[in-house]
Design a protein around this nucleic acid. Structure first.
Lengths: 329, 329
DNA sequence: TTCATATGTGCACACGTGTGCATTTTTAAA
DNA sequence: TTTAAAAATGCACACGTGTGCACATATGAA
């Protein structure tokens, strides 16, 4: 009751296992009758190839590694979902790794990726990733690598990103168009490339509308509901209140909405709210919501295609950066 | 510039590769000096073991397969996230598979799982899974298997499920406690074990409160926002309207909320809404929302632990079914 | 029948690792 | 110094697969 191998088939049919191997691949040098015989017996016995053996020989697996901070986030789970679909359509399977915003974990993951002989990696960096040596190490193992969303200028790899600056500029303009004057931007860790870009865009937007409101950037400690609640609490107890809030994450936005609802100041639902993600829940929950939508499908597809290019063409892998525009709905 | 192997180390150090192998594992039969020498050289050169070779020898990988309908769903992504964390803490990695509610895909997945020599599987079934032979096939390859959430009575495997009947009964009682009288249950495909249980619970609840309202079960076509919108549209244009809706999925609930908001009948926000999942967004969006929360962490942990038991103890794997209670918040 | 050419199969090895066993080297006792 | 025991290392094989090459069988023509 063991796993059946080509050697088993060979023994049973009284031929050599190499013949079985060729027959199963439909090699033209094998007699049609033999092929037929082998094929039939193989499917009768439910033969399944052992890919481990295959990879050991050819030293390239059909496993794609996807590294995200945490998969329990709409953006990342959607991304992984799409990559997984595309991968399985191309005969690959996807291994998911969660860095949990920890460089230490990230290093463990790259180690694991090397050990598993993984065919290629699509990754979004942690917030604290400044040292990128563990990713560069993948080069010496010739493991193709594509970065998405959270990139690092230090890591010269193909990348798929959002035009974060434009996204924030446009959301400022849209809020202005809706009549809001005093927009605050609630940002994450400012050291990350992505957030720097968003801040740039925010300031650019303010400039374009000649905003009188001193630019107001608040750094939240994290991206939890509580963080959103706290930052709203803080901002609305200042002298010069904002009339619109732009969030890096819809989770923060929910926290702020919660504050607005329970605060007796009747600010809700007049305050403008904009956030990355949260469609369509946020729009349903409050009338003045704008959702910044990343084209997740396109970005996932682009990442996968870039990776595939690198896998098929291991030598000639030029570095490309693909930038996508957000939609604001 | 190739991958370094134990043979490379052996050649370089002038010893046999079997000695290197033993040294790297710190075998007591190897001279301490040799171990030291090998260890140092290995870490200098950044040696990483090739797990493919390892698995080929021992024929058991460190890959756990997780099958879900689609990972872009809060419940499943949270589940996968937790399993992945636990797995990586135990030296395993997780491969994600999406059945997309298709038995055909499910069969492809089991095939892939066999080919990859995967160490164990945690799976939730598709809606249309009645034939379970592809899962039973895993037995002949001795691949441990744990079912969660969506199970089948035909598949006698260890399972981790929610007490769906009690959950629905309790939510009926809670809505009744809040003063609602006419509760409708918007259900998915009734052939699935899980939904049958929920219907049972719903009817049990109605009986317990002596509801006068004819039991009202509407079957939605799917689980999209649009489906939720449509079902609300239909129900609220009947003569005897419900005053509370219980949904199998928060996505449906959002669609219904959307209808309530745009319909001029000022039904919103008086209608009671209950749904599986959606915490805390739903509660923030409408005052009369109840969220049925599955203990996802506990369920994921239980599934993982059951699988580990089966992996460690391949022979003595008794079938257990663990049932968890939902919380209603 | 005899040789040359197709056609089909078998042999041996490689991939990287671990392990039972044989062999060599070292150590300790006589 | 010899001998027995102990310690350290090498050898060979296995895991399942694919492939270059040699070999065998069959086909055809002279």
């Amino acid at each position: 009751m063991k796993r059946i191998t080509i050697k088993d088939i060979a023994r049973e049919l009284g031929i050599h296992h190499s013949t079985v191997s060729r027959a199963l691949r439909g090699s033209p040098e094998i007699n049609a009758i033999t092929i037929e015989k082998v094929m039939r017996y193989a499917s009768e016995r439910g033969y399944q190839i052992n890919r481990n053996a295959l990879f050991l020989r050819g030293s390239r697996s059909n496993i794609i590694g996807v590294i995200v901070p945490n998969i329990h986030h709409s953006f990342f789970s959607n991304f992984v979902s799409i990559v997984t679909k595309l991968a399985s359509a191309s005969g690959y399977i996807v291994a998911v790794f969660q860095s949990e915003e920890s460089v230490k974990q990230e290093k463990e993951i790259t180690k694991s990726i090397i050990q598993q002989n993984i065919a290629g990696v699509i990754s979004s960096l942690t917030m604290e990733t400044t040292d990128v040596s563990h990713f560069q190490q993948l080069d010496s193992y010739k493991i193709p690598f594509v970065c998405f969303d959270r990139i690092s200028p230090l890591l010269s790899k193909s990348a798929v990103i959002l035009d974060n600056a434009s996204a924030l500029k446009n959301v400022v303009l849209k809020l202005h168009g809706k009549g809001f004057k005093k927009m605050a931007y609630l940002s994450g860790v400012p050291s990350i490339h992505l957030f720097k870009e968003r801040q740039k865009g925010y300031l650019l937007g303010l400039k374009e509308i000649n905003s009188q409101y001193e630019n107001c950037i608040a750094i939240t400690e994290g991206f939890s509901i509580e963080n959103g609640f706290e930052v709203a609490l803080k901002l609305f107890n200042r002298k010069n209140r904002p009339d619109a809030l732009i969030f890096d994450s819809h989770v923060l936005a929910w926290g702020a909405l919660n504050y607005l609802k329970i605060s007796k100041k009747k600010l809700f639902p007049k305050i403008g709210i904009a956030s990355f993600g949260g469609y369509p829940w946020l729009s349903l929950a409050t009338p003045n919501a704008l959702v910044i939508q990343q084209p997740e499908e396109k970005m996932a597809e682009a990442s996968f295609n870039l990776l595939m290019e690198n896998i098929k063409n291991p030598d000639n892998c030029e570095i490309k950066t693909l930038m996508f525009q957000a939609e604001i709905a």
